[in-house]
């Protein structure tokens, strides 16, 4: 049925199934992307009816915008800690809820739940936790760590964002790890146990190598989400205190929609796109090499 003789018919059949998807992809991804690149060569405030051509000026401005590179560096720092912590915590949780403890199905659901709350709402909830709950706790028990709001200090505010992101994504990655762990063949584990391998050895030599495909997926997802972080950043700290936690996406948004400089904002978004693309491609390339067959 698929192998139609006539070429036209074959293409028609293929278009029938892929056409709608291609159309939507073109309309909402490709066209805006290309138009975005086009816009980087113009100066526009979003309202004006004239859009003067400025050539490479916007790109020159990107390299002169110190705050932008600061925000990129902060984002990279954030991604580094977030990826390690999210995957570490998620793997621990996954091992825990597949170990056969009582009520593990309940725990799976519970750990996954934060992911069902939108980033904005989550940010507001945690803002309350850091501003009020933690401070009250700190005052009551005389803990100097919590005596002042974390969101009022630039270093602690950064960690606040990391903590909230870990809390949000760990459950989601856990689900992927659970699927991976269930697919580890029981026979080889059994065989290694008989051969006298202890739990640590089994984990290191058997389970972890077989879990590489899961790790590729989770690290890819957390990398990409980390670089694109905006909602938690916005609702938790709004880039504050005094602009110290402004991540790259927020900086780009501010340039376009607060400074009304669409061209520069687009150019910075394009640079950010390169950074993210580079990081994820490298990650997938290198981790593919680690994959093994059971």
């Amino acid at each position: 049925m698929i192998s139609e003789k006539h070429r036209g018919k074959r293409i028609g059949n293929q278009l029938l199934f892929t056409g709608p998807a291609i159309l939507i992809f073109l309309a909402v991804i490709l066209v805006p992307f290309v138009y975005g690149i086009y816009m980087t060569f113009f100066q526009w405030d979003g309202v004006s009816s004239t859009m003067p051509f400025v050539g490479k000026d916007n790109y020159v401005a990107v390299f002169q915008d110190g705050k932008f590179w600061q925000s990129i560096w902060l984002t990279i720092k954030y991604v580094f800690f977030m990826v390690i912590l999210v995957n570490g915590v998620a793997f621990l949780l996954a091992s825990l809820v597949t170990a056969g403890i009582r009520g593990q199905h309940f725990f799976r659901t519970a750990f996954f739940t934060p992911n069902l709350i939108g980033g904005l709402v989550l940010g507001f909830i945690w803002q309350f936790v850091f501003h009020n709950v933690a401070v009250n706790f700190g005052e009551k028990f005389g803990s100097s760590l919590f005596a002042t709001s974390w969101l009022g200090d630039e270093h602690k505010a950064f960690w606040a964002i990391v903590i909230v992101s870990v809390w949000q994504y760990a459950g989601y990655m856990m689900v992927i790890f659970v699927a991976g762990l269930m697919n580890v063949p029981k026979d080889i584990i059994e065989a290694s146990t008989i051969d006298g391998a202890n739990a640590w050895l089994r984990m290191r030599k058997m389970i972890l190598p077989l879990m590489v495909p899961s790790f590729i997926v989770t690290i890819f997802l957390s990398l990409q989400r980390g670089f694109m972080v905006y909602d938690v950043n916005f609702s938790l700290t709004k880039g504050g205190p005094y602009g110290s936690t402004t991540m790259a996406s927020m900086h780009v948004y501010d340039k376009a929609f607060r400074s009304y400089d669409y061209g520069l904002g687009q150019a910075e978004a394009f640079v950010l796109f390169f950074v993210v693309a580079l990081a994820t491609v490298l990650q997938v390339y290198f981790s593919k090499k680690l994959e093994v067959e059971a």
Binding site: G152, P241, Y242, G243, R258, S259, Y260
Partner: peptide, 20 residues
């Protein structure tokens, strides 16, 4: 003032308020 004044210089004022 321009549209980003409150955000950019608001941050500078916050820094001053915090004694930083």
């Amino acid at each position: 003032v321009p549209g980003d004044h409150w955000k950019v210089l608001g941050a500078s004022m916050q820094k001053y308020l915090a004694g930083k």
